[in-house]
Write a protein that binds this DNA or RNA. Sequence first.
DNA 1: TACAGTAACTTTAAATTTTAAAGTTTCTAG
DNA 2: CTAGAAACTTTAAAATTTAAAGTTACTGTA
Lengths: 128, 128
Amino acid sequence: MAKTKSLVSGGRERSSCPIASTLDIVGDKWSLILIRDLLTGKHRYNQFCDSPEGVPTNLLAARLRKLEQQGIITKEPYQSRPVRYAYSLTPAGRALLPVLQEICRWANAYIEDTWKPPETFMAMKPKT
Amino acid sequence: MAKTKSLVSGGRERSSCPIASTLDIVGDKWSLILIRDLLTGKHRYNQFCDSPEGVPTNLLAARLRKLEQQGIITKEPYQSRPVRYAYSLTPAGRALLPVLQEICRWANAYIEDTWKPPETFMAMKPKT
DNA sequence: TACAGTAACTTTAAATTTTAAAGTTTCTAG
DNA sequence: CTAGAAACTTTAAAATTTAAAGTTACTGTA
């Protein structure tokens, strides 16, 4: 069977350049912060709110919706009455891990006072 | 001698997370497009304008100024009368190459119809 | 000498996005 | 019956982005 690429960009791509296309999906101030949180074990709205960057809640809701539409994350109910959703990464979302690891390597080398991520994060592999 | 980290973020960092800090520097819709162009041999204002994404010229000027202040790029006059500047990457800017390469790998794997970058780009190394 | 053209910006005004803050809904616990 | 929590939504102001036109300082051609 042929592998199917899974992402939806919404028809507003600036070009077919892989860099421009990626930025059209996650190239804003908050998406990669959310993906970082999802990769490090956060799954719920409140947990994203608690991250030190302080995303505005309306943007958080908007980003979760957009990333879901684009196939980067999915949500599943973890309780009903009232129904509440837990968010997780799709395979495409998890595959952004090496990008985030490279970003961390760059930041640690060139920006002062950036946290060194735990070795568990830097050694993670997408399939896990 | 101790190695000195070179980047200026402007005191508006959201946190010391390496990912958040990197996004505070290049996490907008145009900066990585410019860095891509600089990595692939473009150096002048008009060449950046000609890229298929079509950056608005006022944003181009603003980004060039901001990236220069942050230590990602430098400019040098390539003629006087009238003075015109050619832009290039600093070592910190060139060191973003592996990040862009990872982004290309991700896009080619998960977004349909993205261009495959030339092997010369994917095989480049930062020091070169 | 006049005029078109080029490179690199800057200015402007409208449209869009982001932000901070407060409000809403649906439930549980005491 | 009241307080509290989780997950959003709404609102209005502020900031940013966009498209388009304008500016400056030259060069090359007629």
